[in-house]
């Protein structure tokens, strides 16, 4: 009698939908519903201790006029604009280098992936030590070879570069995806180009990059959104937004408004500004993709 309900009897699409169900439920319960609640919250004064009071658009106005809010958006964007392309292109180049099969290459490939499996908190604490202005290995090395040693996370000028530098290591995901994409390209194309006299740079520029562009674009999307929202753990543990707001990002603003200052309404409003900005990033990238005609057709589907 179980055969009547067997999953095998269901159509292909129904089976897929069934398999997706737990994930969809997770997204609805953990992401969409809280997001809608926070949207409603954005229109109230709410300190979590007394009942909410209707505030209209006030929270958005308060956030908009708060200098720290504008600063946090600027910081967030600058922490996307520079490191994200660096990371994606870097993981692509590394994948290209590691593409051949060699005795040690598999070790290198594992080594490149390794930082990505380190939990965010452990990674942040390790880098706090690596970038210690006096006793950290980076500065000991710089001093040993006679270079000036910046104070990194302690110096308002160097704090952002420090975070960028740290962000260059966990690129395992982009690396694996790029590697898979490169393996997917028929080797004949490269051979033909080589016979025509193309050098290593020309092969990358004229053959490999255009062919992997849809995938690199997808990686860029993901990385930009991810960095925008997920940079919180590192920053919270390493700089708390300091020194003097140099690394104060939008998620940190939202967290402080909510859990430090108990202004959940303003936090909700700022959260929706973050959603809107995320949407904007996706739209801009989509328009670029459309113009290049990559990643938007049935064959090179990205979005």
């Amino acid at each position: 009698m179980f055969e009547r309900f067997s999953i095998l009897r269901l159509s292909h699409h129904t089976r897929w939908r069934l398999l997706l169900l737990p994930y969809v439920l997770g997204v609805i319960i953990l992401v969409i519903v809280p997001a809608l609640f926070s949207f409603a919250l954005a229109f109230f004064h709410y300190d979590a201790l007394s009942p909410p009071v209707w505030a209209g658009r006030l929270n958005f106005v308060l956030a908009y006029t708060d200098e720290l809010f504008a600063l946090s958006i600027r910081n967030s964007l600058s922490l996307i604009l520079i490191p994200v392309p660096l990371r994606v292109f870097g993981s692509f180049l590394l994948a290209r280098l590691m593409q051949r099969n060699g005795r040690f290459l598999s070790w290198f490939r594992s080594a490149i992936y390794l930082p990505s499996v380190v939990p965010a908190a452990a990674f942040a604490l390790a880098w706090l030590w690596i970038l210690n202005p006096l006793y950290g290995p980076v500065n000991l090395l710089l001093t040993a070879i006679g270079l000036p040693a910046p104070a990194w996370l302690v110096d308002p000028v160097w704090a952002k570069p420090a975070l960028v530098l740290m962000g260059l290591w966990p690129i395992g995901e982009g690396f694996i995806v790029s590697l898979a994409a490169l393996y997917d390209i028929p080797p004949e194309l490269e051979d033909a180009a080589r016979i025509d006299g193309a050098g290593a740079v020309a092969i990358i520029g004229h053959i490999l990059l255009p062919l992997t562009a849809p995938i690199l674009l997808l990686l860029t999307f993901r990385d930009a959104i991810f960095t925008f929202q997920e940079s919180f753990t590192h920053i919270y543990l390493m700089t708390q937004g300091g020194p003097y707001y140099a690394t104060y990002t939008l998620p940190l603003f939202i967290y402080e408004q909510g859990f430090d200052l108990r202004a959940f309404g303003i936090a909700g409003a700022a959260l929706w500004v973050m959603y809107a900005l995320t949407g904007l990033i996706v739209t801009v990238l989509y328009i670029i993709a459309k113009q290049w005609n990559v990643g938007t057709t049935e064959e090179t589907f990205v979005l």
Binding site: P133, L134, Y135, A151, V154, D155, P243
Partner: peptide, 8 residues
């Protein structure tokens, strides 16, 4: 100083 305090 700030750097020394951050270092230890």
């Amino acid at each position: 100083g700030r750097i020394e305090e951050a270092a230890q």
